[in-house]
């Protein structure tokens, strides 16, 4: 049994303008100790997927369908009491902007100790010691002194390390990192990624790494999910996604990033504008921007198909190719789960 099993997740926001279907049938599994990357265009539902797992959605948002199982336990509709146990204890999250998630009016030490005592039976003294230990673990020097300082006295990189310390204080099974290094400089980012990798190996936790940076994914992730318009358009091992992309959006994404080899040439951008979730096309959501769209793409959505044991994609181009050489078979939805066995 996988540590985390998400099945056919649908999350919507009910706004005056209508129902915003931010997540549309997302399914995946996360094994213990693995790093799963989630990439995709801005607004494709990466954060909402993470917030759904934690059940920390805005008040207008609701999981309308689907199942989320942690160690076999169903979390959807499990109630706030169960979720309080899960958050911090079993699953922790770090956000993109450490300044908005640290309280500017309390010392770093106060906030760390609060995170520790909230979830575990520890005395104040034990919590202090643990907090100092965590700061040391994330390479904050002079941790005793730092405990008494306020967030504004820390640099951006240090604040992000404090957030990691806070998220790890209770030794969660899963760490969700939502763009943890986007706001940071390259050399500080390298420090943080190295730290996350070594802590992950030491503590054996699983990580869900949400990022728009394909370089970060290439460096850290075992598995990759590519999202487009609230759905997973492609999923597989990092090697498969980078070297054998099988969805037209992923291919476009790979072509549009500058690398050392593109200097002096024109990039090949994905044309058109991002999708409007209130106005979803009938067929494949990427069809309006896809250079290879066929008739069927405009009218019917493609199911996720198995490309090989390590790879699934939802793109009619594979059916076309497969029909020609007979090499791929359609996979059918299994309502009991086990669908995303990529």
């Amino acid at each position: 049994m996988a540590l985390l099993e998400v099945n056919n997740l649908h999350t919507s926001f009910f706004t005056p303008a209508g129902e915003v279907r931010a997540v549309n049938g997302v399914s995946f599994q996360l094994e213990r100790g693995k790093v799963l990357g989630i990439v995709g265009e801005s607004g494709s539902g990466k954060s909402v997927t993470a917030y759904s797992i934690m059940q920390i959605l805005a008040s207008t948002g609701r999981i309308v369908e689907g199942s989320i199982k942690l160690d076999g336990q169903e979390l959807v509709n499990a109630g706030e009491k169960v979720m309080k146990q899960v958050r911090g204890n079993k699953i922790s999250i770090i956000f993109q902007d450490p300044m908005t998630s640290l309280n500017p009016t309390y010392t770093i030490g106060h906030q760390l100790m609060e995170a520790i005592t909230l979830h575990t039976e520890r005395s104040k003294k034990q919590a202090w010691d643990r907090a100092v230990e965590m700061l040391r673990l994330v390479n904050v020097n002079e941790p005793e002194k730092r405990m008494k300082q306020y967030p504004f006295e820390f640099s951006g990189g240090m604040r992000q390390r404090v957030m990691i310390a806070m998220a790890l204080a209770c030794e969660p099974d899963i760490l969700i990192a939502d763009e943890p290094t986007t706001a940071l400089d390259v050399t500080i980012q390298a420090q943080i990624l190295e730290l996350m990798k070594s802590l992950q190996e030491e503590l054996g936790m699983a990580i869900i790494m949400i990022t728009h940076d394909l370089g970060v994914v290439a460096q850290l992730c075992d598995e990759v999910i590519v999202m487009y318009a609230g759905s997973i358009c492609e999923q597989g091992t990092a090697e498969e996604i980078f070297y054998n992309p099988r969805h037209e959006y992923t291919k476009g994404l790979m072509r549009s990033i500058p690398t050392a080899d593109t200097a002096g040439t024109r990039l090949q951008p994905i044309t058109g504008t991002p999708i409007d979730l209130l106005n979803m096309p009938k067929g494949c959501p990427f069809a309006p921007r896809c250079d290879n769209a066929m008739k069927i793409c405009l009218t019917r959505r493609c199911e996720r198909m198995k490309i090989n044991d390590d790879h699934m994609a939802a793109c009619w181009m594979n059916v076309k190719a497969g029909a020609e050489d007979g090499s791929i078979q359609l996979e059918h939805e299994d309502p009991e789960g086990g669908e995303a066995d990529a």
Binding site: S155, A190, A218, F242
Partner: peptide, 27 residues
């Protein structure tokens, strides 16, 4: 040198073989 070595390369084989010079300390 450390800046260039830390560039996240969008290619798993290169990224994993890369020897990053990770700086300690803050700016």
């Amino acid at each position: 040198k450390s800046l260039m070595s830390a560039v996240p390369q969008p290619d798993p084989r290169i990224a994993r073989a890369n020897k990053r010079i990770v700086l300690s300390g803050d700016i």
